[in-house]
Amino acid sequence: MGRVVLVTGVSGEFAARVSRALAEQPGVERVVGIDTRPPAGDLGGVKFVRADIRTPVVGKVMAVEGIDAVVHLDVNPSEQSRGRSGAKERNVIGTMQVLAAAQRSELVRKFVLWSSTAVYGTSPKDPALFTEADNARGGTNVGFPKDIVEVESYVRGYSRRRPEVIVTTFRAAQILHPDIPAPLRNYFANPLLPASIGFDPRLQFLHLDDAISVIGESVLHDRWGTFNVAGPGVMLLSQVSRRLGKPTIPMPPIGFAAASSRAVRMMGGDISPDLYRVLTHGRAVDIAALRDIFGYEPKYTTEETFEEFRAAVRPGPLGVLGLTK
């Protein structure tokens, strides 16, 4: 008998692709995807259950389906148009309900959290590369970084209460892919890129194939612990701008968030409220633990991920990249 896996947030493109990939694994008997709305595309062999993880219904789904592994992917940055309150409730309250359901279950033996490098925050005091043992130096008091800090704390509490469950936490860099919504992908879609004067932030990207692969490894094999996941190497914002053919708009660091938000709205675009500090100070992580302890070597570097992304998109009107919503 293989694993019976629950994947949260399956209406999102990333979670849908993860679900389909898991369903094709020989060590997985069945995959159940849960979300408040059905996915846009075909889930293949994945069973879809329409339910809200912010309610106790998720516990009934686990019991009825006989879930023994949970892959929690429904933790995401807020979208400018949807506001913070809904994202906060989905990220934090949703995680609490999923963990409560997993704790009540006698079958769950594996819990995988797709976290974010945003847990390290962003500040001028950051190390060159964050390791899993590092703490945030600043920038986690509001927005998605605050959410993800809370989410990880709840998952650690669950792990202490249920030590027999293998808990794997991935602190992932942003996936850069034309079809996967992400703050940096959406930022790069603008014809001009707001940039903070005097700063050239270091950026890291994660390839979609590597993201799907590490999740699959964690479900099929016992990989307990917390791991940074990113493509090796970094790119500077100036390099990205030059290769995309997108000029930057220099803006003063003081008031950068408000000024860049206005500029992006005038271009008809959108920018995540959680992105401004990254566009000033940048963020990069060390993936030695992923290689040495987890046992996974990313197939794509940050630069290779970016170049594949650049080749896949095509400039549209006003130079806007041809990206899906």
Rank of each mutant, 00 (worst) to 15 (best):
P191G: 07
P191F: 05
P191A: 05
L193G: 07
A195V: 03
G198Q: 04
F199Y: 09
F199R: 00
D200F: 05
R202A: 10
R202S: 12
L203W: 05
Q204C: 03
Q204F: 04
F205W: 03
L206F: 00
L206D: 00
H207T: 01
L208R: 01
D209L: 11
D210C: 04
D210K: 03
S213Y: 05
S213W: 10
V214N: 01
I215N: 09
I215K: 11
S218V: 06
H221K: 13
H221P: 06
H221S: 14
H221W: 12
H221T: 15
D222P: 06
D222V: 15
R223V: 10
R223K: 09
W224S: 09
W224K: 11
G225M: 02
F227C: 00
V229P: 02
V229L: 04
A230M: 02
G231L: 06
G231C: 09
G231R: 02
G233Q: 08
V234L: 10
V234A: 09
V234Y: 10
M235N: 04
S238D: 07
S238M: 09
Q239R: 12
S241N: 02
S241V: 04
R242W: 12
R243S: 11
L244K: 03
K246R: 12
K246S: 07
P247R: 02
T248G: 10
T248H: 07
T248N: 09
I249G: 05
I249V: 11
I249F: 00
P252K: 03
P252F: 02
I254W: 11
I254G: 06
G255L: 09
G255E: 08
G255F: 10
G255C: 07
F256K: 00
F256S: 00
A257C: 11
A258D: 07
A259S: 05
A259T: 04
S260N: 04
R262S: 15
R262Y: 14
R262I: 13
A263V: 03
V264D: 06
R265M: 11
R265Q: 13
M266C: 14
M267N: 11
G268A: 15
G268S: 15
G268F: 14
G269V: 12
D270Y: 15
I271V: 13
